[in-house]
Structures are given as C-alpha cells and as structure tokens.
C-alpha cells in the first residue's frame, strides 16, 4: 500500500548562472512499513529532499502526497497540523526543547495537537528505547545517545504515518550509533512504522531494505519506486 508519493519534485535556489538544482525532478513512492535510506555526499541534495518530504520546505515545483493528501496544497497552519499528526522527525542535533524534561519532550507533539498521550504506549516506547529511568531528566543532563533516543521516542509518540531521520547518528560515536540505530529499527518494526533515513554513511544505509543514491539533486542509484516485501 503506497502511503507516500512524490511527483516531479524540484527545488531550485538562485537564478541564471547561479541556479542550484538541489532537487531536480525526482519521483518516488513509498509503501507502508518500508525502511528506506537515502545516501549521498555532502551537498548532494538528500537533506533538501528529506525536508521536502517532511513538509518543512516547499518545493519549487511538484507535489508530495502523504496518505492521499497533497501536503503543499495546504496553507501553512494546516500543513503544521498535518505534519504533527503524520510525520515524526529525528534530527542530527537531537533538537530537544531544553526547558522540558524527557517525558514532556516526548509527548510535546501530542500536546501541540491538543491530545493526551496514550501513557501506556509512551511508557512502552521509552522502555523499548531504554530511557524510562530518564523520564524526569532535562536534556542537558543526558548523553548524546540518550538524547537521540528521546528524539526517536518523540518521533514515535504521535504514531505518525512516517518517520524521517536526518543523519540521526551524525553526532554520535560508532558504538552509540550502532545502539541508537538498532533501537530505531527495533521500534519502527515493533510499531509497524515507515522509516526514511538520510545519511552519508554506507554502513548505516546498508541496514535499510532499499538504498537510494542521490547526487546533484537526482537519483543515480536504486529506485524510490521499488516495492518492498
């Protein structure tokens, strides 16, 4: 079942000779439960592609359809609401809210949506990610790996359709990276989530069911159209 589709996505910066084609006419489709990694060198356009998929950056042209909704046809405020219900993000720099403790950071997307958390589910997620004991701690008291696990829990909290992770282990050492990735994969599988990871690391990319190579804004290897399963 296709849950995410991109049609003729383009993102250009600048004009004339200075025109940069960060994403150049990319089409893709993603099925429910897919684990896809997008790999490419620095500046290849992979992060821009992920931002567009995540509803964070409007494309110059083309459309992204998630669960049947063309995201960029929504006005900004509706897009924000759509995003918080449908997409979970994991960033390289964890991006936790420093004034909120772990629990509050995790349930924040639900709070912003005016919803109450499914306490049992969240406890379970924290347990899966092995951070239950840190529930009451502030982010600055946690290690990098722990902070990233909180960010993963936050991404899972609202049971979104898709999880997007942008270099999720970029700030971590190899041992911690391994742990975090394992847990991310484990949780995604456990809660039957769809996961797209952006990375420049071949080893990490290789853990995915599908690898898509991006260079100069176009797909040069793999395909975003293959069907998993």
């Amino acid at each position: 079942m296709i849950i995410l589709e991109g049609k003729s996505l383009c993102k250009y910066y600048g004009e004339g000779e200075n025109k940069v084609r960060a994403v150049d006419n990319i089409d893709f489709s993603v099925h429910k439960g897919d684990f896809i990694s997008i790999i490419g060198q620095s500046g290849a356009g992979k992060s821009t592609l992920m931002h567009i998929i995540g509803g964070l950056d409007r494309p110059t042209s083309g459309e992204v359809i998630l669960n049947g909704t063309s995201m960029y046809s929504l006005p900004d405020h509706k897009l924000a609401i759509f995003r918080r219900r449908q997409i979970g993000f994991v960033f390289q720099a964890y991006n936790l809210i420093p004034v909120l403790n772990v629990w509050e950071n995790v349930i924040l997307p639900l709070g912003l949506d005016g919803q109450e958390a499914d306490v049992q589910y969240i406890e379970d997620v924290l347990d899966t990610l092995n951070i239950t004991e840190k529930k009451g701690s502030l982010p600055n008291t946690l290690s990098g790996g722990q902070q990233q696990r909180v960010a993963i829990a936050r991404a899972l909290a609202s049971k979104p359709s898709i999880i997007l992770a942008d270099e999720p282990t970029g700030n971590l050492d190899s041992k911690t990276s391994e742990d975090v990735l394992t847990m991310l994969q484990l949780s995604v599988a456990k809660y039957n989530q769809t996961l797209i990871i952006v990375t420049h690391d071949e080893q990490i990319a290789s853990r995915a069911d599908r690898i898509v190579r991006v260079q100069d804004g176009i797909i040069v290897g793999g395909s975003l159209h293959e069907t998993h399963h």
Partner: peptide, 8 residues
Amino acid sequence: ILKAIGAT
C-alpha cells in the same frame, strides 16, 4: 524545533 514537530 517546535514548529518542525508541529507547532502552528
């Protein structure tokens, strides 16, 4: 971040 995770 708040905006990215869904704050309007």
